[in-house]
């Protein structure tokens, strides 16, 4: 099985190169942002916002967290693209070779999941390293807060990865774009259905204070209740794995 994971990582070689560029860019941009937020133009702008718009220091801090979160999401978002593995396998006709290997269907499917885990692991570790650097530079960012953000982001991406894998198995080779589309659709739909009431209030007229509060609740959920998303990710991965094995056994030749 290790051989298949290595093969999958080879398929993602190009992505790993892009990933390394993104990591460097994110690190540079984050450091620049943090330094500027403490000593430079962003610090001045923040002061202005506090004076003119009546924003508190907590609001400013949340705003910074939001900006840095977007930066830190980029490495995780670019690292684990399961659809590329399927598309490369499909182009090569690797399923024939794979089926002749002394590995059971379960192990062949598991290899795909482990590859995605490995890739997310690389993304999470990189982000943690970046936060260590940032939290050492400034008090705007605390390691504990961003740890929660990163786990939340990785969990969301894992859910997405698990959905992509199951859709790729279901739809077969050459339909990876549809698999991505379906996975995004399922995630958006689930998020909308689970938060329907909250989303409804967004469309109602609210005061600035209420708007800021809603924004803070959203950020705090990711920071503090990351374990909820983590558990959902684990459950989704497990369900997705068993469904994928079931599909792969019925629809032989897809893995």
């Amino acid at each position: 099985m290790r051989g298949l994971i290595l093969k999958d990582l080879m398929c993602l070689r190009k992505q790993l190169i892009i990933f390394s560029y993104i990591v460097v860019s994110v690190l540079v941009l984050s450091v620049m942002y943090v330094l500027s937020a403490k000593y430079g133009n962003i610090a001045l702008a923040n002061e202005g916002m506090m004076m003119e718009n009546g924003m508190s220091s907590i609001d400013i801090r949340n705003l910074s967290t939001w900006v840095l979160s977007i930066f830190l999401l980029l490495p995780i978002a670019t690292v684990g693209d399961a659809a590329t593995i399927f598309s490369e396998d499909g182009k090569a006709g690797f399923s024939a070779v794979s089926a002749s290997l002394p590995l059971s269907v379960e192990k062949r499917v598991m290899a795909k999941y482990l590859t995605v885990f490995v890739m997310f692991g690389i993304g999470v570790l990189t982000d943690l390293l970046i936060i260590s650097v940032l939290s050492a530079l400034t008090d705007i960012v605390s390691f504990a807060e961003f740890f929660g953000m990163i786990i939340s982001a990785a969990s969301l991406m894992s859910i997405y990865g698990a959905l992509v894998i199951v859709f790729c198995f279901w739809l077969g080779h050459g339909k990876e774009d549809y698999a991505i589309f379906c996975s995004c659709g399922v995630m958006v739909l689930s998020a909308v259905l689970l938060n329907f009431r909250k989303i409804k209030t967004l469309f109602a007229p609210v005061s600035d204070a209420q708007g800021t509060q809603a924004f803070d609740t959203f950020i705090n959920f990711f920071k503090q209740k990351f374990y909820v998303l983590f558990i959902i990710a684990l459950i989704t991965m497990a369900v997705s794995y068993f469904v994928s094995v079931w599909i792969a056994k019925r629809k032989r030749g897809v893995v």
């Binding site: 093969k7 070689r13 182009k91």
Partner: peptide, 9 residues
Amino acid sequence: FDEMGFHEF
């Protein structure tokens, strides 16, 4: 097999 099956890269 009649076709190689390994990735071209």
